[in-house]
């Protein structure tokens, strides 16, 4: 998936609007960011550490700074900034206000107070803190290239992931077949739509999974440069319709219609 927010443990769980506190590592893919493993800072696939807290707690910014301190980044010795970043995912019908957190100029975390998910306004906003693991690791290990990160005592990040980057960049930018991706998008969309049409809450997770696959197919087409500005909107609206369908089914929102 494209980001930890897409995981059902954020997208669906926050719609429950109860007490939900979760933390998980989410491998994420952004095909357009692939650089054939040549750029020391850009990856088509990377790790996010996701923290979701619902409902709101007021000391959260300070708790976040404590969390940096606990991994030996002492906030007193760095320029840490909370810079406006109104987060919006048009494909998920989700938005929130918040910040990107800069650590000496480097964005290391995305910090959002969710207001809406899947087109449904949350009755209790959720706090989402998404740590960029590679960047934080580079900072801690003082490396200029992500591939030089020491994964453990024997392996570097590059030993494990550099070839992935090369292969998937090659695929996304050069070999991905537009026609097939279009077909896949349509198939995934059809399956998700069909699952939603049963209006059974116990099918919402599979329906949502196909919605995510659609989103990925769309990202692949985008990376391949096969989507124009105006077409992009149509694709986004299609994925969003699925995401909103899942959110409505999950919450029972609009059942009476």
């Amino acid at each position: 998936m494209g980001a930890a927010t897409f995981a059902p443990y954020t997208f669906l769980k926050c719609l429950d609007c109860g007490e939900w506190r979760a933390a998980y590592v989410q491998p994420s893919r952004r095909p357009t960011d692939g650089r054939y493993g040549q750029n020391p800072n850009r990856l088509g696939r990377y790790y996010q550490f996701q923290v979701v807290i619902q409902p709101y707690i007021s000391r959260i910014q300070e708790i976040y700074l404590d969390s940096l301190k606990s991994i030996s980044i002492n906030p007193n010795e760095h320029d840490i900034r909370f810079v406006e970043d109104d987060w919006e995912s048009p494909t998920l019908g989700a938005w929130g206000l918040g910040w990107e957190v800069w650590l000496d100029g480097m964005e290391v975390t995305q910090f959002t107070y969710f207001q809406q998910i899947g087109g449904v306004e949350l009755s209790k906003p959720a706090i989402e803190i998404t740590y960029g693991l590679e960047r934080i690791a580079m900072f801690l290990q003082n490396k200029d290239s992500v591939f030089d990160l020491q994964w453990n005592d024997s392996f570097k990040y590059g030993d494990i992931h550099k070839d992935d980057e090369l292969q998937f960049s090659k695929y996304s930018f050069e070999y991905a077949d537009g026609e097939i991706l279009h077909k896949l998008f349509n198939l995934y969309e059809a399956e998700s739509t069909k699952l939603l049409s049963f209006k059974l809450k116990e099918l919402v997770k599979p329906a949502y999974e196909y919605c995510l696959k659609c989103s990925h197919a769309f990202n692949m087409l985008d990376a391949r440069g096969l989507i124009s500005v105006s077409e992009r909107m149509n694709f986004i609206l299609k994925v969003r319709a699925l995401a909103e369908g899942c959110a409505r089914l999950y919450t029972g929102y609009g059942d009476k219609d």
Partner: peptide
């Protein structure tokens, strides 16, 4: 001094990454 050094090296590093891109 140590704070300034941290900031300078951090800023330069992050810019280098952007410029490399």
């Amino acid at each position: 001094e140590s704070l300034e050094n941290n900031i300078k090296s951090g800023y330069s590093k992050v810019l280098t990454a952007r410029l490399a891109d």
